[in-house]
Amino acid sequence: MITRADVEAAYAKTAGLVRHTPMVSSGEDLPFTLWFKCEFMQHTGSFKARGAFNRQLTAREDGELSETAGIVVASGGNAGLANAFAAARLGMPATVFVPETAPANKVAKLHAAGATVVQHGSEYAEAFTAAAEFAASNGAVLCHAYDQPGIVAGAGGVGLEVLAELPDVDTLLVAVGGGGLMGGIAAAVEGKARVVGVEPETVPTLHEALAAGRPMDVSVSGVAADSLGARRIGEIGFDVARRTGVQSVLVSDDDIIAARRRLWESHRIVVEHGAAAAYAALLSGAYRPADGETVAVVLCGANTDPSSL
């Protein structure tokens, strides 16, 4: 169970190690008020640094983290980059398992961050199994990409910052893959604002779980699969979503591509497809704000190839 208190504790613990990212007005003439939370400006280009630092600091405090074994994480790219960055700052080695389909730019960044990179399997779930086996045999601390209390609580700092700068916010639109960011934010703003989870039609982890009443495996494909490519929603994110009433909406690959291009052409914001999914909910009409509603779109990552815009 993750609560606002857990998020606040994580936020205090990671102070000075992660960036307080800006919020900017869209500047558009709309019947509702639109803000962008620019979390793509976080260290390593995504929100993942928040949970990575919180998980690793907690493990070190608990005596769980070995200076020789370090940490291991499975990731499509962003969680690996964040955990490698955090481990380097804390003086620990990092091993990152990525799917063989991971984008070349993210793999290159992992090497540049000093991580040992192992490519295994065709999707995140296979890389995670290999990482867990490595942790069991090597003694490294396993840092889950999205489904550990410290990871989720750390990610929730995004929600605290939105509330601090925009206390009258009504709705936060958040992209969902494994659900760590959504779960952390929903816990942070519980009782103060609603959270809408936005998912690709091709990877509807939260949507299917809400319909079934429990996390379910889904097939993984589409333009955002490198960052929103979890096979199922995490238990923690799902529990928070049910407790707080998170709504799920779906967007198509075409919607995501159009939203990413619009962010660049109209706002000069460069994000990856997974981050653009949250904005796609507005452009496609998957989420329609009421007149006068104050909406914050969380733009959660920028690890992309700008030449593809």
Results as ranks from 00 to 15, higher is better:
138 N>S: 15
141 V>I: 09
143 C>F: 08
144 H>G: 13
145 A>F: 10
146 Y>M: 09
150 G>V: 03
152 V>S: 04
154 G>D: 02
154 G>Q: 07
154 G>I: 02
155 A>G: 10
155 A>Y: 10
157 G>C: 09
159 G>T: 03
160 L>Q: 06
161 E>S: 08
161 E>N: 04
161 E>R: 00
161 E>D: 04
162 V>A: 02
163 L>E: 05
163 L>F: 03
164 A>I: 08
164 A>T: 04
164 A>V: 08
166 L>H: 10
170 D>E: 06
171 T>M: 05
171 T>K: 02
172 L>A: 12
175 A>L: 13
176 V>R: 08
177 G>F: 14
178 G>L: 11
178 G>N: 07
179 G>W: 13
180 G>K: 02
181 L>R: 02
183 G>R: 02
185 I>A: 14
186 A>D: 09
186 A>Q: 11
187 A>C: 14
188 A>N: 09
190 E>I: 02
190 E>A: 15
194 R>T: 12
194 R>W: 03
194 R>I: 02
195 V>T: 11
197 G>C: 09
198 V>G: 09
199 E>Y: 05
199 E>F: 06
199 E>V: 00
200 P>T: 05
201 E>T: 12
202 T>L: 14
203 V>C: 15
204 P>G: 06
204 P>N: 08
205 T>M: 01
206 L>V: 00
206 L>C: 05
207 H>T: 11
207 H>D: 12
207 H>R: 12
209 A>W: 01
213 G>V: 09
219 S>A: 14
220 V>Q: 10
221 S>N: 14
221 S>L: 11
222 G>D: 14
224 A>L: 13
225 A>P: 15
225 A>E: 15
226 D>E: 15
228 L>S: 07
228 L>K: 10
229 G>F: 14
230 A>N: 09
232 R>H: 15
232 R>G: 03
236 I>M: 01
237 G>L: 01
238 F>W: 00
240 V>L: 06
241 A>G: 02
